[in-house]
Amino acid sequence: MSWTLDNLDLVAELTLSHIRLSVVPIVLSFVIAVPLGWVANRNPTLRAVTISAGSLLYTIPSLPLFVILPYILGTRVLSEVNVLVALTIYGVAVMVRSAADALASVDKDTRQAATAVGYSSWTRFWRVELPLAGPVLLAGLRVVSVSTIALVSVGAIIGSRNLGYLFLNGRQRNNLEEILIGIVASILIALLFDVILVALGRVLMPWQTTAPLRLLARQPSPPRQRGGASWSSSSAR
């Protein structure tokens, strides 16, 4: 633990920077993806285009995207804007599908009922559709959050100051402890963000039945009917 104790300042500085580099793309991708998801639900063609574009962008490996962006954006190679933009692209790519699914998941009858009681389509979106899409949106956002935090560290290769620096530096100095501290800190940030998102979901969507908190994991699908499906086939009913 000696290295860690000697370098607490560095770890703290990199952790904060890591958080800053993660928050921006997470927030941006949410803000960009929700309108896109809404557009995607207008008609099947738009949906196909949006979702395919998302999955194509998602296919681009991270380091190549980091190094391609400066040539497109005209930024310096070492600028952290590249990292922010790249992570936002991935975030949007994942989130747009969640957003489209989330908005599509809103019960048709509920939507019609809302129109019938006199919501305009604008207020209906904000008061009815968006809140009801909340749970699925939250699930998508949690995935974006976790994977963004993990991906930020790759940016260290092109000079971004974040926990990834500990991985590169630790390898150079053959210091396993330094690398492990970086991994642990990165995972802890992911956990922290997940806790915050879940808590936010509980506050904003109090009508949701309170399921047990399952960190970093997608909500499991409901337990399936197990009609005698065990090996012993004796538990059927």
């Binding site: 976790v146 993990a150 560290s153 926990l163 500990l166 970093l216």
Partner: peptide
């Protein structure tokens, strides 16, 4: 159906693992 929880936790946890960190840690 045995071990579903294991898969769910594993895939969730794997997403949080920084790949660069894993590479460097293993290499050292």
């Amino acid at each position: 159906g045995r071990g579903r929880q294991f898969v769910i936790s594993l895939t969730g946890g794997a997403r949080a693992m920084p790949t660069l960190g894993l590479l460097m840690a293993l290499s050292v």
